[in-house]
Amino acid sequence: MELAFGHPKSLKPIQTKYCPGCGHGVIHRIIAEVIDEMGLQTKSIITNPVGCSIWADLYFDFDSVQPAHGRTPAASTAIKRMLPDHLVICYQGDLAAIGTAEIIHAANRGEKFTTIFVNNAIYGMTGGQMAPTTLVGQYATTAPNGRDPVEAGMGYPIKVCELLATLGGTKYLARGAVNNPANIKKTKKYIRTALEAQMRGEGFTLVEVLAQCPTNWKMSPADAVGWLEQNMIPFYPLGEIKNTLQPAQTDAAAGER
């Protein structure tokens, strides 16, 4: 009998340290599935960021490099340039504040690695501080009365895909979510499109993934998926924000637009 569904080879079959209901685990899994489908397990390198997903190197079953907070796009730039035939995944939560310069300039140079930006609207690892993508009014330990953009000096939530879309080096920018099976399926397709484009050497690709952090949102995992649907998706629209990949190559994702 043919095995129709199983644990991806690129992900170790071990329990993660992530909290129940965390988005990181699901995102790891769909990345691993795509890498397996592309047959690139031993040709992949992940740069695991400073953040909860610093643990990614425990779970992905291939090479990894762990750079400083926010600097993964700079490190990934060099890794991909040293190993242009490898699949380089820059996995980040920390790109819209401390890593802003690095992501903008890597994108602008059209660096040919793929960024997976996990947007959970919070700083998870350090215990729930305001992230650059925290929604207006959303509670964080450093926004105890909710994010107040101007008076309290907290700024507005940053839409990373839209921000990067103006840059010449960016070829594919998509936003998915992992709060329900339908969104997970679409997100996996975006990731596949991005990784395939990377291997064709097309340019900068990024998939932003809206993800739950039930622990720091102070909700049950079940409430968190609903909160994401009702609060994050209206502000961070899902879909392909920019797709200037070669026309013949985008059919796989076309149905999802």
Binding site: T47, V65, P67, A68, R71, A74, A75, S76, T77, A78, I79, R81, M82, L83, E102
Partner: peptide, 9 residues
Amino acid sequence: NMVYGAAAT
């Protein structure tokens, strides 16, 4: 940090 990435390879 680019040096870090290149050196890592």
